[in-house]
């Protein structure tokens, strides 16, 4: 991992890192069940998540979509009493298995949260924090990655003159893009976004959406959203969750124009949820 990180800055950042045009899946979910103690939050779902595309998870609150998302990089481990059955295959390994090095997994499957949560440090340190832990110590290399990831997160022009100011001096939208920058600095393969724009104003929201579409060429993205327009604008495939079940999973266009299940139709037309 360390060598990979060191090498990767020499790559041409504008070129997609995955040259495969055929849609190939990066995550295969097989009969995944997630429990909080006695309560089952996700009831055995199976789906393929495609490489270099945006997959949106929609559904009313409490439908299990966030729980599912958090299980992909094992953030659910933090919740006492929660456990998962079934499997999520990534690079040929079941990442739910006991012998997975969760820390290494999270470097490859990054996550951005609903509320912007920058560290109480400078903008620069927010990005270098994890890089330093991953073993990158050289100042020039760090500078390079900071600039590259801020550019990719469409934040560079706004903050390049005050990299050493507190991250708390940024607006909410800027903070969220900083969180995205900090995640892509680790060059993960998958980025999980948990309602990343819901706490933002409309202009910041639009910027984050543009950014997500932009990131697709380099990363596989899974996004949980409450906002149906957002899902239809940015995602390639959409999965509709209800009460812990995966009701329908298809191309976004199909879901929003001609869903096969009645419940989906009812939800996206706003009849409940």
């Amino acid at each position: 991992m360390v060598t990979a990180l060191k090498e990767r800055t020499t790559m041409d950042v504008t070129a997609p890192s995955h040259h495969n045009d055929r849609l190939e899946s990066i995550l295969s979910v097989n009969n995944l069940q997630i429990f909080y103690g006695e309560k089952r939050a996700v009831n055995g779902i199976s789906m393929e998540i495609e490489k270099n595309s945006v997959t949106a998870l929609i559904g009313p609150s409490g439908c299990g979509k966030s729980t599912f998302l958090r299980s992909i990089n094992r953030m659910n481990d933090l919740i006492p009493g929660s456990y998962a059955k079934g499997e999520i295959i990534y690079e040929g390994l079941n990442i739910l298995a006991e012998d997975i090095n969760v820390t290494a997994l999270r470097k490859e499957i990054g996550m951005v949260f609903q509320k912007p949560n920058p560290f109480p440090k400078s903008i620069y340190e927010n990005i270098t924090h994890a890089l330093k832990f991953a073993g990158i110590k050289k100042k020039s290399k760090l500078d390079e990655i900071v600039e590259e990831s801020l550019r990719n997160a469409a934040l560079w022009d706004e903050v390049k003159d005050r990299l050493h100011s507190s991250a708390y001096s940024l607006s909410g939208g800027q903070q969220q893009r900083l969180c995205i920058a900090r995640t892509i600095a680790m060059k993960p393969n998958v980025i999980l976004l948990d309602e990343p724009a819901s706490a933002l104003d409309p202009i910041s929201n639009a910027k984050v959406e543009d950014l997500i579409v932009d990131l697709k060429k380099d990363y596989s993205i899974v996004i949980v959203t409450h906002n149906m327009q957002q899902a239809s604008r940015i995602s390639d495939k959409t999965a509709f969750f209800l009460n812990g079940d995966l009701i329908e999973y298809d191309r976004t266009e199909k879901i929003f124009t001609n869903p096969s299940v009645e419940k989906t139709e009812e939800y996206i037309s706003g009849r409940f949820g």
Binding site: T3, A4, R8, S17, Y90, L93, N101
Partner: peptide, 18 residues
């Protein structure tokens, strides 16, 4: 140039990580 280590080497717990 891509990830040089195999998925097993990267993602499974090892003595070093422990």
């Amino acid at each position: 140039m891509e990830k040089l280590l195999s998925a097993q080497e990267r993602l499974l717990k090892s003595k070093r990580s422990r």
